[in-house]
Nucleic acid binder design. Structure first.
Lengths: 187, 187
DNA sequence: TTAACTAATTGATACGGTGTCAATAAAATT
DNA sequence: AATTTTATTGACACCGTATCAATTAGTTAA
């Protein structure tokens, strides 16, 4: 799905971009302070030349944005699995409620990365949008059953995001299912 | 209270530091992008020489930290007014519950500043601590009355912080009292 | 008010990161 | 094997950082 066999992308490009991305992520996860996060340090970590960086990215921010796009795509796939390998676990529509758990599970398994990325304003905005979709669907489900949320969806989403950020900052002290329970309880 | 008559601080220093602080704050509130936030641009805005900056601060981060300390002190004073001009509005202990409203009011009146500062990890951590104190006091009050919160204090605080961040990012669409109501409702 | 301090300015400097380039080496495609 | 594309290398101009000595301006105290 992501890149079929007919793609004529030079394998060197794929390898190089992957290495720069992994390099930046590893540096970010090590909490390298901003002043030492230079193109040179990223190139060193990637074991590539500094000039090569500029063949693929405008600047560090550009690389960051591309990483964000990939991570968001992965997140969306995790929450809403592609129709092909949909596990269709009976129970009719598993969509709304349990998506929150999928979301938290996915974040839990990439805690270090998400802790760093959630510092990024644009990333938070995008995740907010994804969460808002989940909560909206969920809200419609509840509405159909006669129950409804007591507070606006945006408040549910922003508070959930706040909880997740704290959860990550504290080293994910609770399991994702317990956290989901607490969030649901608050709604 | 802040600076008595015996303080032998050269008025030039006070003026200079004030101007650098105001300069950085005004630049931050204008959402100047990070790459253009230089010592030179701050000095320009302050109408002071760049070298003068280094007479008072190690770097921009240092100036930022000093601003944060001042803002936090102001915030604490707003929430827990100094014993001298305590308004003591009968009703015994007004402490716990209405402190949330004072907190939100204060943020509302400095929305631009707080929106920027809450991007800062250290600042968020400190505000988290202040909010945790408020919520803990509040929780004890409720406990004494037989009622208690359904979720851990940290979850209440982190969700509230998330809501406040969203509220500021959206240009404070609700009044602070309405927002307080929604937060209380969720607890 | 003058003399002494102390802060701010100015111009200079070394250093390090940025972004780009031409020439060359290495790898992939045909 | 020949051609095309990517990666490396060394060089370069530019800009921001951080510090300095010398000078100017403002404050304090005698």
């Amino acid at each position: 799905m992501s890149s079929n066999k007919n793609s004529k992308v030079d394998p060197r490009i794929i390898r190089t971009k992957r290495m720069f991305k992994e390099a930046l992520i590893s540096l970010l996860e090590e909490n390298v302070d901003k002043s030492k996060l230079t193109v040179q340090s990223i190139a060193d970590r990637a074991e590539l030349n500094r000039a090569t960086f500029y063949l693929h990215y405008r600047d560090i921010e550009d690389l960051m944005e591309q990483i964000i796009e990939e991570v968001l795509a992965e997140m969306s796939n995790t929450i809403t699995p592609s129709p092909v390998n949909q596990q269709s676990i009976g129970k009719g529509n598993r969509a709304s409620g349990s998506r929150l758990i999928s979301f938290l599970e996915h974040i839990h398994q990439n805690a270090g990365l998400y802790q760093v990325l959630l510092e990024n304003k644009e990333f938070r905005k995008r995740v907010f949008g994804i969460l808002l979709d989940i909560v909206s669907l969920w809200g419609e489900d509840r509405k159909a059953k006669g129950r409804s949320f007591k507070v606006p969806n945006e408040i549910i989403v922003s508070s959930s995001l706040g909880i997740v950020s704290w959860w990550l900052a504290e080293g994910t002290p609770y399991s994702s299912s317990y956290l989901a329970k607490q969030i649901v309880r608050m709604v």
